Measured scan of single mutants.
Amino acid sequence: SAEDNLGPLPENWEMAYTENGEVYFIDHNTKTTSWLDPRCLNKQQK
């Protein structure tokens, strides 16, 4: 699965689903949400 390739979410991040079944990500560090997987963003920065 995609999660196996990317590994676990960063600390204090949570994956959630909208009512429509779309995946989004919650950053409890900054109390924000994102459509972008933080694991993908980390890979792009390196």
Rank of each mutant, 00 (worst) to 15 (best):
E11K: 12
L9C: 03
G7C: 06
W35N: 03
W13H: 05
H28N: 10
F25H: 01
E14H: 06
W35C: 04
N20R: 13
P8G: 07
N12C: 06
E11T: 13
N29E: 12
E14G: 06
L36I: 10
Q45P: 15
C40R: 14
W13D: 00
L36Y: 12
L9T: 03
P10S: 02
E22L: 05
N20D: 11
T18G: 06
Q45T: 14
C40S: 15
D4L: 09
V23C: 14
I26T: 05
E11Y: 12
N5T: 11
G21I: 01
K43N: 15
N42T: 12
T33G: 01
E14P: 00
E3T: 12
E11G: 09
Y17E: 15
P38D: 00
R39D: 00
E3C: 07
A2I: 10
T18I: 03
P8S: 10
G7E: 09
R39G: 02
T18A: 11
N12I: 00
Y24Q: 03
Q45R: 10
N42A: 13
S1T: 15
Q45E: 14
T33I: 03
Q45L: 14
K31N: 07
K43Y: 11
T18D: 06
E14Y: 04
P38Y: 00
M15D: 04
N20I: 11
E3S: 10
E3H: 12
E19T: 11
E14W: 02
H28S: 06
H28L: 05
E19V: 11
D37L: 02
Q44H: 07
W35G: 03
P10F: 03
T33M: 04
N12Q: 10
C40V: 15
K46N: 11
G21L: 06
Y17V: 11
L6Q: 10
E22I: 05
E22P: 01
N42M: 11
E3N: 11
S34I: 00
I26A: 03
E14C: 07
S34V: 01
T30P: 00
G7M: 08
W35R: 04
P10I: 00
S34K: 02
M15H: 05
E19H: 11
N12R: 10
Y17G: 06
G21Q: 14
L36D: 07
Y24A: 01
Y24L: 04
Y24H: 03
G21N: 13
D27F: 00
K31G: 10
V23M: 14
L41V: 14
H28A: 06
E22F: 03
L41G: 15
T32N: 05
R39N: 02
E11D: 15
G21Y: 06
L41C: 10
D37I: 00
S34W: 00
E22D: 08
T32P: 00
N12D: 08
K46Q: 04
L9V: 04
R39A: 02
F25R: 01
A2M: 15
Q44L: 07
W35H: 04
K46M: 08
D27P: 00
R39S: 03
W13E: 00
T33Q: 02
D4F: 11
L41A: 14
W13M: 11
N20W: 05
A2T: 15
D27L: 00
T18C: 09
N12S: 08
W35P: 02
F25L: 01
T30G: 06
W13C: 08
E19L: 10
T33D: 01
L41H: 10
E14T: 08
Y24W: 03
Q45S: 13
I26L: 13
P10Y: 02
P10C: 00
A16G: 10
W13I: 09
L41E: 15
W35L: 05
E19P: 13
E11S: 12
E3Q: 13
G21D: 10
N29P: 01
W35D: 03
D37H: 04
S34G: 04
W35M: 05
Y24T: 01
T32W: 04
T18Q: 06
N29C: 09
V23N: 13
A16M: 06
D4H: 13
A2F: 09
L41M: 15
F25V: 00
N42Q: 13
Q44V: 08
C40Q: 14
D4I: 14
T30S: 11
N42C: 13
E19S: 14
L36S: 08
M15R: 10
P38C: 00
Q44I: 04
D27V: 00
K31H: 04
N29R: 13
T30N: 07
N42L: 13
P10N: 02
K31T: 05
W13A: 04
H28C: 04
Y24V: 03
R39T: 03
L41S: 14
P38S: 00
G21M: 08
M15L: 13
L9G: 01
P8N: 09
E19W: 06
F25I: 00
P8Y: 06
T18F: 04
K31V: 04
N29A: 13
L41K: 13
L36Q: 07
T18Y: 03
C40D: 14
N29W: 09
A2E: 11
T33R: 04
E19D: 14
E14M: 05
W13N: 02
K46W: 04
K31C: 05
G21V: 02
N5Y: 08
G21W: 05
E14R: 05
L9D: 02
V23G: 09
F25W: 09
W35S: 04
A16Y: 02
K43L: 13
S1Y: 07
P8D: 06
E11H: 14
P38E: 00
Q45W: 07
Y17M: 06
D37A: 03
N5A: 10
N42I: 14
F25M: 01
L9Q: 03
I26N: 03
P8I: 07
E11P: 13
L6R: 12
N5L: 09
G21H: 11
P8V: 10
S1G: 08
N12K: 10
N20E: 14
E11M: 10
Y17A: 13
E3M: 04
A2H: 10
A2C: 12
E14K: 07
G21C: 06
Y17P: 05
F25S: 01
E3A: 10
E22C: 07
N42W: 14
E22S: 09
N20H: 14
R39P: 01
K43Q: 12
D27R: 00
G7I: 08
P8K: 11
K46E: 09
N29V: 11
V23D: 05
D27E: 08
P10D: 02
F25D: 00
L9N: 01
N20Q: 12
P8R: 09
W35T: 04
N12F: 07
T30M: 06
N29Q: 08
W13L: 05
E14L: 04
G7R: 08
W13P: 01
Q44P: 07
R39Y: 01
T30L: 09
F25G: 01
K31F: 06
H28V: 05
L41P: 12
A16L: 06
E22G: 05
E19F: 06
N20C: 11
T30Y: 05
L36K: 12
A2N: 09
N42H: 12
C40H: 15
E3D: 12
L9K: 02
E19Q: 12
E3I: 14
V23W: 05
N42P: 12
W35V: 03
Y24M: 03
F25C: 00
L9W: 05
M15K: 14
I26H: 02
M15P: 05
A2G: 11
S1R: 08
D4T: 10
S1P: 02
M15Y: 05
N42D: 14
T32D: 04
E22R: 06
L6E: 09
N5V: 10
P10Q: 03
A16P: 00
T18K: 09
G7L: 09
N20T: 15
G21K: 15
L36H: 12
E19N: 12
R39I: 01
T33N: 04
D27C: 04
E22Q: 11
I26F: 03
R39C: 02
P8L: 06
N20P: 07
W13S: 04
T18L: 08
L36E: 08
D4N: 15
Q44G: 14
T30D: 06
P38R: 00
A16E: 07
A16D: 08
H28M: 05
T32Q: 07
E22M: 05
E14N: 07
N42S: 14
T32I: 13
L6D: 12
S34P: 00
P38M: 01
T18E: 04
A16K: 07
G21F: 07
D4C: 05
T18S: 12
G7Q: 07
S1M: 08
M15A: 10
W13Y: 07
T32S: 11
R39K: 03
D4K: 10
S1D: 06
W35E: 03
H28E: 04
E14Q: 08
Q45N: 15
M15C: 08
E3W: 05
T33V: 06
I26Y: 02
N5G: 09
K46V: 15
A2K: 15
Q45F: 07
Q45V: 12
Q44F: 08
T30Q: 08
A16V: 06
D27Q: 04
N42R: 13
K43W: 11
D4M: 12
N12H: 08
R39V: 02
T30C: 08
G7D: 11
Q44A: 08
N42V: 12
E11N: 11
A2P: 10
G21P: 01
M15E: 09
H28Q: 06
V23P: 15
S1L: 06
M15T: 08
L9Y: 04
E22H: 10
N12G: 15
L41D: 14
W13K: 02
D27S: 03
T32V: 11
D4A: 10
L36C: 08
T32G: 06
W13T: 05
Q45I: 11
M15G: 04
L6C: 05
E3R: 08
F25Q: 00
T33S: 05
E3Y: 12
N12M: 08
D37P: 04
V23S: 09
S34M: 02
C40G: 14
L41F: 15
